[in-house]
Amino acid sequence: MRRFQNPSFEYVGLEDLAETVADFKQRDFKFVQICATALDESCDVLYAFVDPETTDGSMTGIMVNVPDGVHVPSITEWYPAAFVFENETHDLFGIQIDGINIDFGGEFYQVSMTFPMNPRAAELEQSARVADAQEEGTDNE
């Protein structure tokens, strides 16, 4: 009896992400999902696809490491269904994603705290806000 699926993970640089996804789209890969994991210093973003040519339907995971404050290109150009996950990744992890087809601008989930899944990003956001407020204060003076 077959008990397990055997997924494969592939680490890709952030700059190669768009190219890889475009290539997948051309090869008719099926899009599964996007999810982020908060690490100590950065975040890992996992893009999962299914290769139509594999016989056992195993998934291919594209793992992208995203340092704090770095923007990620959207993949909705090739896979429009990804907008749900990209908005979610922004709202929960604070990863900035550029060029989403339906961009909710951080209003997709109304949560009681900023970036709940990634406390580090929340701190950064908080200090940026404080800095902004101080700057405004000096402008007014």
Partner: peptide, 24 residues
Amino acid sequence: YAKGNGSKFLARMRIRTPTSQNIA
């Protein structure tokens, strides 16, 4: 998707459900 961290607690558990894929 699950990721371990060496203890009884997982580092990350991700569940993507069918409806989120169907919203588009």
